[in-house]
């Protein structure tokens, strides 16, 4: 009885401390900058909005039929998926490797962690332009390789219709690996020292410890990192725009670059339709991926 009274009193006080209308400012921002644009995205995709005339008319599924009958959209979607998968793989490999290397809290490690985190807070376009300069046929990377082997090297890193997408994905992963590292470090910190000690007493070597104990226990960090890297890079634009602009030969033309190009032509409705397609693709992909990754966490 006493307990009940205190409880209801507590709830009442909490209610008066935090009235629901306190949410309104946040809600307004959410509605104006998130819900409305997303809904407009759905609406404008079915119109003929363009820069050429001021009237906007309903156009049915015209935009969808013309986009899907033209192979460019499907090609851009394919490129986007390949890019996202590559980024997810590289970013997590780099991030995990860094986290394991820099796990101990020494003074040097702390400084090095900061160094690897710096790219995360750099402008993505700046990163792109720096790498574009480094990777040019007469750029610094070829210069270094040439100096090491004593020959003239002029590899066009951004000029291969097969491999450039891998190179650009590595650049993207390089920029974001600091964030993955941070999350993996946090994950490693949560592992109970007793479990590790028990394993050590049982004679497990470092590799067994990693494979059978630490990596499985990192599952939540893996879920977050893989999901954000995969789904985030589906929306990639800046790095690829700065390094290749979708070239060579359209082999790195992500959907967002295609959207940008279409928007730039003044075909606003078509660009909106494409971004709706991207939105739906990311959504459709997100559910099974996150479900699968969460399933892995069941061992915990």
């Amino acid at each position: 009885m006493t307990a009940n009274i205190t409880l209801s009193k507590g709830t009442a006080r909490r209610r008066s401390d935090h009235p629901l209308w306190f949410l309104i400012p946040a809600l307004v921002i959410l509605v104006v900058f998130f819900f409305v644009p997303t809904l407009s995205n759905f609406v404008y995709a079915f119109t003929d909005w363009s820069s050429f005339k001021s009237a906007i008319n309903f156009a049915g599924i015209d935009n969808f039929t013309s986009l899907f009958s033209n192979g460019t959209l499907l090609n851009a979607l394919k490129v986007t998926l390949v890019y996202a998968v590559l980024v997810a793989i590289f970013q997590n490999l780099f991030g995990l490797a860094l986290a394991l290397l820099l796990e101990r809290d020494t003074r040097v490690n702390r400084a090095v962690r900061v160094a690897f985190f710096i790219p995360v807070i750099m402008s993505a376009l700046a990163v792109g332009y720096i790498f574009q300069a480094l990777l040019k046929p007469d750029g610094a990377l070829n210069g270094i390789i040439g100096a090491l082997f004593g020959t003239e090297v002029a590899i066009p890193w951004l000029g291969s219709t097969t491999w450039t997408i891998v190179v650009v994905a590595v650049v993207h992963a390089w920029k974001w690996m600091g964030l993955s590292m941070l999350i993996y470090l946090a994950g490693l910190k949560t592992i109970d020292e007793d479990v590790l000690e028990a394993a050590r007493l049982d004679g497990a070597n470092r590799w067994t410890m990693f494979r059978s104990i630490r990596f499985p226990l990192l599952a939540p960090a893996v879920t977050f990192n893989v999901a954000t890297a995969l789904l985030g890079s589906m929306n990639g634009f800046d790095i690829v725009q700065a390094t290749t602009e979708g070239g060579p030969g359209g082999t790195t033309e992500l959907l967002n670059i295609f959207i940008f190009r279409t928007f730039g032509q003044g075909l606003f409705a078509q660009a909106t339709t494409m971004s709706l397609v991207l939105f739906l693709t990311v959504t459709i992909l997100a559910f099974p991926v996150i479900r699968f990754l969460r399933k892995r966490e069941d061992v915990l």
Partner: peptide, 29 residues
């Protein structure tokens, strides 16, 4: 440029250009 990189044939260049031109012309009415 795609043609020079080897990812499009001259026929595909003409087709892609025509398709985009039609799209733009249609949008202009």
């Amino acid at each position: 440029a795609d043609m020079i990189q080897g990812t499009k044939t001259p026929t595909e260049v003409a087709e892609a250009t025509q398709a985009q031109f039609e799209e733009l012309a249609k949008a202009q009415g």
